[in-house]
Each structure stands twice: as C-alpha cells, then as structure tokens.
C-alpha cells in the first residue's frame, strides 16, 4: 500500500503517526516483525534515513524493540499498546470536543448523540 505524504510536514513524523495507527488498529500485531528499513523505504517511496528515524522514535516510545540479530519487532507489552490507544483516543476526543463546542452543542446533547451513533456503528460492523 502506498500512503500519500503531505510534503508540507516532516515526513518522519507522518510515518511515525502511520505506524502508531497501525499498531492501535492491530494491522501491526503485537510481536510482529517489522520490515527492514530498505523494504519500508521502497514500499512507501521515501528516504531510508527517514524510515530509520521514524522507527527509532517508535523504539524510543517503547512501541517497538530491536533485536540486533533478528530485526525489529512490535512490542508485546499490552499495557503500552493500550496506553497508545488511550492517547490516540484522547487526542481524537479533544479534537471532537473542540469541534462540538464550536457548533455550540451542550454536553448532554453531545453525549446522547455519541451514544446513539456508537450503537448504530456497532450494528453496522456486524
């Protein structure tokens, strides 16, 4: 798959965000081997050093670890992944609250709207 990058923002950050989303969604499952820097660079059409930097950040955030001989792997630490989910959710929620406030919707209306649509989506998923 090929993501299209926004050339106006640092690409390594966009890659980092992308990997985090993949981990959160489970596309990159816990303990899964991450492709090599070169393979990823080719896959996404970006500079290998940029990939290296993004993966380095991933390790720094404890979302991945590198085993010198066997390569890089997604973390198997469920707590870390859960925390990532919550952090992502927090960001999305903050954005939502900002948007809802801009529309001048009350907290009660917002909550009932969320509850209604949440159940609908649940149904749609099955």
């Amino acid at each position: 798959m090929s993501i299209s990058f926004d050339n106006q923002r640092p690409i390594y950050i966009q890659l980092l965000d992308f990997f985090r989303a993949e981990i959160v969604s489970g596309s990159l499952s816990p303990g899964q081997k991450i492709e090599s820097v070169r393979e990823l660079a080719l896959k996404y059409g970006v500079n290998p050093n940029t990939v290296q930097r993004a993966l380095g950040e991933l390790e720094h955030l404890n979302l991945a670890r590198s085993d010198r001989t066997r390569g890089r792997f997604v973390t198997e630490d469920d707590e870390v992944i859960q925390q990532l989910r919550l952090d992502s959710a927090q960001q999305i929620t903050e954005d939502y609250i900002q948007a809802a406030r801009n529309l001048q919707i009350s907290l009660d209306d917002a909550l009932s709207l969320v509850k209604k649509l949440w159940d609908d989506q649940e149904g749609g998923k099955e």
Binding site: N7, Q8, R9, P10, I11, Y12, N47, T50, R53
Partner: peptide, 15 residues
C-alpha cells in the same frame, strides 16, 4: 535537512 526545513517553514520543499 529536508524534514527540518519542513518543520521550520511549514511548507513543502517545492513551496
């Protein structure tokens, strides 16, 4: 550095 320029200028290299 490309990414550094993007971060500082908020623009693509082309822009």
């Amino acid at each position: 550095q490309a990414d550094k320029m993007r971060a500082e200028r908020g623009q693509s290299l082309n822009e």
